[in-house]
Design a protein around this nucleic acid. Structure first.
Lengths: 336, 336
DNA sequence: CGATCTAATTTGAACGATCAAACTCTGGGA
DNA sequence: TCCCAGAGTTTGATCGTTCAAATTAGATCG
């Protein structure tokens, strides 16, 4: 076990005061260059690294971002979030920020967790996801003044010009637009859409991209829109039934789960090569050789960190300035 | 923004000293019951929660476990590790421990990260995974005295009776044994195995379970063993080729990726219902309706936390006592 | 040459908790 | 009556850092 090296050890050895060592590390511009070099040499030599508890206590900031790791739901949806968290960790590390995990099962549970983490000075900000209309969480965070960014826009309000809070999201409509365009060009005019029942912001957004593209090109009567709650089995069943009625050239889906279900249905009916595009680009569709819209969670994470940190790179409570409180990431169509 | 409530505020209001408040929270048994109740009432009333930076500074422990979140964790596929991390977070929270993430791309990178985290007092222990023979990481951790548990046994040494360090793992042989038994009973005597080239501890362990079960039952000449590096496409190709030569009744695979490849190959050859069992029970095989051996990451996580914490529930450097330094989790066969 | 200003560095005081030791109080026994 | 033990509580020091104010060194100028 190595003895702990403190700032005093460095100061003594370098023949300067504590504060000068501190300045070398935190505000190099106020220190004479020759002093800086001398101190840095001792820092490296002794392998000094500031005790973050002491620093946090004094500065009253933890430089830590809290992230909830969702319970494994079973199904595909997790992959995007996992990549997002991973990218967030990498990006945060580059800015000398840390990422702390916490677990919660319900929104109320999550709020209780924040309360502890905030009071204890464990986090300076949190990243939340899966917000929904009337979500109690955003109100709590705003009221208590805990900085945060949400992955997913605050549906319902005017997200762009009068944003309730900072947010990052993927442009779902752009994704399905690219998918639909691609299918119209390569498969034929009858491109259907398989999504969820109306009402979910994400689903409606994705459907819009398809609808607009179909509308531009042709009449679109021959392009059916199907909806199913979620789940591979449900999608498979529905598509098996509907394919008997409608003849289509290709299908755009609101998620990879739906795409897998549709693909299995098509294969059952002897059409394994029916062009189908999913959404999320999970390993499942990669395995099956289906095209998909990739969310690029790495870009989302980078944007989230940028939003939550101020110009100095530190976390700060930033107001949701109209037009500058969000980032909308362009997804990418992966063709297979 | 709420004003911070300190231990002094509570003390003043309750008419006791700082230390008594501290004792109420950390060592209730030394405080008179009536005092305890009075103080607790004030604590709740003011919503006091100790500042963890101050506590950490004084006690010299962070009560935090470091976990590397990496998209490409060698050995353990994504979903298993994600579920593991999630379960770890839940379990840690119940013990009032925190989980801190860090990112690293190489073993050296990871060691550098540990050095910072350890020096800065950010973590008291780490959980590592994907260890391999001659892994530089375990040596570093032991030398520097940073407590750790590995998910994956230290292959090569006598893991059980002379363990190099604490570890948790899943009994791979038991998993393939269950799978093989099941297939022998339901499909027929010719149960093959698709694994990786010899030499990987995990792979050899899984193969052993199949081989022992096959050996017990029948001669086993009609049970071929195939190997491929990894990857769905490679597996698909190999199985397509081999199925033309060998007639088999069912196939046990060392991973879900291999199982998916084998399934696609079988389907190509008009045998979509060839019984195949994978390993890891990822969403992919769930979607395809294949059976798989489930690792039960939640149990692994619970065992890891138990190993790393002492009787008091706090993290402590624990020696790897022969016979008591590990936990071997029984996997579960999911039949579909 | 002394006054003035700026740059560079040092000093003393926090930050909020726990540790270790000292103190107070109560009841029992000689 | 006096002393002692032990439970319960308080006091002062300390963890390692950064903040804010004070000090010193060095340069500029009339």
């Amino acid at each position: 076990m190595t003895e702990a090296v403190t700032i005093d050890d460095v100061a003594r050895r370098a023949g300067v005061s504590r504060q000068t060592v501190s300045n070398v590390l935190n505000a190099p511009q106020v220190v004479r260059e020759s002093t800086r070099q001398r101190v840095m040499q001792v820092v490296e030599q002794l392998g000094y690294s500031p005790n973050s508890s002491a620093r946090r206590l004094r500065t009253r900031r933890s430089s830590t971002i809290g992230v909830r790791l969702d319970a494994y739901a079973g199904g595909i949806s997790g992959v995007v979030l996992d990549r997002f968290v991973h990218a967030l960790t990498e990006r945060a590390g580059a800015r000398r920020l840390r990422v702390l995990l916490y677990a919660a099962r319900t929104p109320e549970d999550e709020i209780a967790r924040w309360d502890e983490l905030m009071r204890g000075g464990d986090v300076d900000a949190v990243v939340i996801s899966g917000t929904f209309h009337g979500d109690p969480r955003t109100g709590w965070l705003l009221e208590r003044g805990l900085p945060f960014v949400s992955f997913g826009r605050p549906w319902g309000a005017d997200d762009i010009d009068d944003p309730a809070h900072l947010w990052v999201d993927v442009d779902g409509a752009a994704g399905t637009r690219a998918a639909t365009t691609h299918l119209l060009e390569t498969a034929g005019p009858r491109v259907g859409f398989l999504g969820w029942p109306k009402g979910s912001g994400t689903g409606d957004d994705r459907e819009r991209g398809w609808r607009e593209t179909i509308g531009e090109r042709a009449g679109g009567e021959s392009a059916p829109r199907w909806a199913v709650r979620e789940g591979i089995a449900e999608a498979r069943e529905l598509v098996t039934r509907e394919l008997a009625r409608h003849e289509i050239d290709a299908l755009v889906c609101a998620s990879d789960s739906l795409a897998v279900g549709a693909h299995l249905a098509a294969a059952d009916l002897g059409r394994p090569h029916l062009p189908i595009v999913g959404f999320d680009n999970t390993p499942v569709v990669e395995a099956l050789g289906l095209s998909s819209v990739e969310q690029r969670p790495e870009h989302v994470a980078a944007a989230a960190i940028d939003l939550i940190t101020g110009p100095g790179g530190a976390i700060e409570a930033r107001a949701a300035t109209p037009g500058a409180a969000h980032a909308l990431i362009m997804p990418r169509l992966i063709v297979r």
